[in-house]
Design a protein around this nucleic acid. Structure first.
Lengths: 242, 242
DNA sequence: AAGTGGTCTAGACCACGTA
DNA sequence: ACGTGGTCTAGACCACTTG
């Protein structure tokens, strides 16, 4: 990182990078307390205000969180955060409920052209492709196709039998040390295919909301491609523009 | 505003409110330069840093914008901002192009139950309802139904003949002094009705992306309800989760 | 009581845009 | 050259949490 168009890099930006590096290296783990602003200022040889500004921006990025009187912590992307930050489907009353999910298949494949492009992979990279159906109050509502590069997610194929956890992003963080910070989504209306219709118990051609999401790390390296097809009979996609 | 759960209100928060008040009163108008941080600090009897913190948060809210070496300005929500902040439809290459729009009808009506609820109006309030079709490269792609309270937007019915500007939000700001700062959107997949199909030149039942948006002022007073039905044959709705 | 983040101050120097 | 915002410092006091 540390790129700049100005010929110089402000101190607090450099501190910010140093902090991020410590998190990436695992020196500071999600959920753990980091040193106090005063201590960090001494360690880096800058004033507390400079460390403070760096930390403030990382808090705004959801990388750190502060608790007055306690200290500053590395954010752990627990199910709650995943739910409220990355999950935009709510029922028609506007309530978010995390659905159950059942894996239909989980296989190692060659990356398709789309996967190669969306995940910025070399051609013909092996990937893991997971298909699952998500139920809201026992009603199948969403079909998800999730693609991950086989490196490093290869051993996920063992998840063929048992159910995967509802919050995959938590798994990525705990098992692989990869934290999802942002995502790009493309939404379209699509007619249900025969396959969709059968699984979701709908008529072929029923309009479905298709969400194509690329999930990325803090430095915007793509990690996961997820295509969801969702019945919007009893649910909708909620977005707030601030 | 000025509510707090802590029994006190920090100085910079109070300054922030004072600044917002000046904007709301029209003392400072969109696009205009506000006094320098130093001058404001003297006027309010606080340090520059405190004014700075207040301004920083307003910049983050898109209420003000700073230009180094020049000063701080009240944001005017020009077409560019409206386009990039509130308009999420892009073509399949990811390019944003603002569509043309043609008004189909513009009438004064009684607010429907949905309009009453979404716009938080008293029952049976008169509203203006505008229907228009939006074209991307001469192809009808989107139908919008826009509802506004007749008070203060009543004279918009005169817009029946001539075309309304593409960027209504700019109109609200310039004509009525109402600035849209945020919006809540609900997205669903819906089958094209006969009316939709005729106007968009599609088959009845074609899946359309329906976007139901409530646009709000800075203090989250609802101003406009807009229901868009969009063909996602050549376009999609783009959302970035940060 | 001790330590943390939260706020606030006063002053310094730098980079940018205008004149 | 001047005034603006952008960054940085050093120090102060307050509010919150834990021991």
């Amino acid at each position: 990182m540390l790129t700049s168009e100005k010929g110089y890099i402000s101190l607090y930006m450099q501190i910010k990078e140093l902090l991020v590096t410590k998190i990436r290296n695992g020196e500071w783990s999600p959920g753990n307390l980091i040193p106090s602003e005063i201590n960090l200022a001494q360690e880096f040889g800058v004033s507390q205000g400079t460390v403070r500004k760096a930390i403030t921006e990382l808090v705004e990025n959801n990388v750190l969180n502060r608790k007055q009187g306690l200290g500053t912590f590395v954010s752990n992307h627990d199910p709650h955060r995943a739910l409220f930050h990355f999950f935009h489907i709510t029922d028609n009353k506007g309530h978010k409920v995390l659905p159950n999910s059942k894996v239909l298949s989980c296989r190692r494949k060659q990356a398709s052209r789309k996967e190669v492009s969306k995940l910025q992979l070399p051609a013909a990279t092996p990937v893991i492709r997971i298909e699952r159906v998500r139920n809201f109050s026992a009603r199948p509502t969403m079909i998800e196709t999730i693609t991950l590069p086989a490196e490093p997610f290869g051993n996920l194929v063992d998840a063929d039998d048992r159910e995967l956890p509802n919050t995959l992003y938590e798994l990525y963080e705990k098992q692989y040390g990869i934290t999802i910070h942002s995502a790009d989504e493309q939404l379209r209306a699509k007619a249900a295919s025969g396959h969709d219709a059968k699984i979701l118990n709908l008529k072929v051609g029923t309009p479905l909301l298709e969400i194509e999401r690329v999930a990325m790390t803090l430095d915007r390296t793509p990690v996961e491609l997820r295509i969801s097809r969702c019945s919007t009979e009893n649910h909708y996609y909620q977005n707030t523009i601030l």
